[in-house]
């Protein structure tokens, strides 16, 4: 699949910045995201786009414009922070990626599949390639940690003989082997979020989408969750994390995509939470 933006990709600035002409070009254009997607020789050439959004706009039935002409590419193995004030369109962008919503115009392509064109019955298979983590964990309160993680496999027709080893493995990855038999209510917030991450991981997804995963956690625990996501990223899983946690974003110097009023205001590799002028 080739991505053909209507204008030539800029090596210096990021494509999407063109849509916000009043904004100054980003100061740290380490390498062009579009160039990486197109396989241009600007660093790791083997990168393969996992997520491509082209001229994506989303207008809700009530007339609210949530996204305007968004262009975004995420190569496989990337770690991307999605930042921006509330109502900037972060949640809509995530909903488009998991096909909870369909773009009003433009293409949302995940792993080569145009999400607007797939049949409804193919949606569950797409979602199995994505692991989703939420601020409020979304755990089933009457099931143990182990059962919560196994639930994701049970409801997707995984043979039961495969469930046990897979659940045990991801619980070991997130460090919850000892708490496997506990109910969520008896766990700390950080442990609950790690349970949710284990559930997101158990399908062996290509992409983890974390929507404010540290929103309910104190700073120390937030770092713990971040470390876990980074480790998962090192294992080769692409991570897209929407967050308001400025400390974490600025300290880690990863790629930062900033949304403002539905537009990508900044797409910067090695960026901080706030614009650094």
């Amino acid at each position: 699949m080739t991505v053909a933006p209507q204008r030539p990709p800029s090596i210096v600035g990021n494509g999407p910045a063109v849509h916000a002409p009043r904004q100054a070009p980003p100061p740290h254009p380490a390498r062009s995201v579009w160039a990486r997607i197109l396989g241009r020789p600007t660093g790791s050439t083997g990168d393969r786009p996992l997520v491509v959004m082209r001229h994506v706009s989303k207008v809700y039935p009530n007339g609210k414009v949530a996204l305007r002409e968004v262009d975004l590419g995420i190569p496989e193995g990337d770690f991307v922070f999605l930042v921006g004030p509330s109502g900037a369109g972060k949640s809509t962008l995530i909903k488009l990626l998991i096909r909870d919503e369909i773009a009003t115009s433009g293409d949302v392509i995940l792993d080569g599949q145009n999400l607007a064109r797939i049949k409804r019955r193919a949606v569950p298979k797409v979602r199995r390639r994505i692991g989703i983590v939420f601020q409020d964990y979304k755990l089933l309160p009457q099931r143990t940690v182990w059962e919560n993680v196994a639930f994701a496999l049970e409801v997707t027709a995984t043979p039961s003989r495969l469930i046990r080893p897979a659940v045990d493995r991801v619980l070991a990855v997130v460090g919850l082997t000892g708490q496997a038999r506990q109910l969520p209510a008896t766990l700390s917030g950080g442990e609950q979020q790690r349970t949710a991450i284990a559930r997101a991981l158990v399908h062996d997804p290509r992409l983890i989408i974390a929507d404010e995963p540290t929103g309910n956690l104190d700073p120390l625990i937030s770092w713990e969750i971040l470390q876990l996501l980074l480790r998962i990223n090192e294992l080769g899983v692409t991570v897209l994390m929407a967050t308001h946690n400025a400390d974490v974003v600025t300290a880690l110097r990863r790629r930062v995509v900033a949304l403002e009023e539905g537009r990508i205001a900044r797409d910067q590799v090695g960026g901080a939470y706030h614009r650094e002028d």
Binding site: I98, R121, P124, R127, K138, L140, F151, V155, A157, H203
Partner: peptide, 17 residues
Amino acid sequence: AEEIEIMRLVGASDGFI
């Protein structure tokens, strides 16, 4: 509703829900 939402998000097909 939350259980159904989780099922949808982890990729359960309609029949399984």
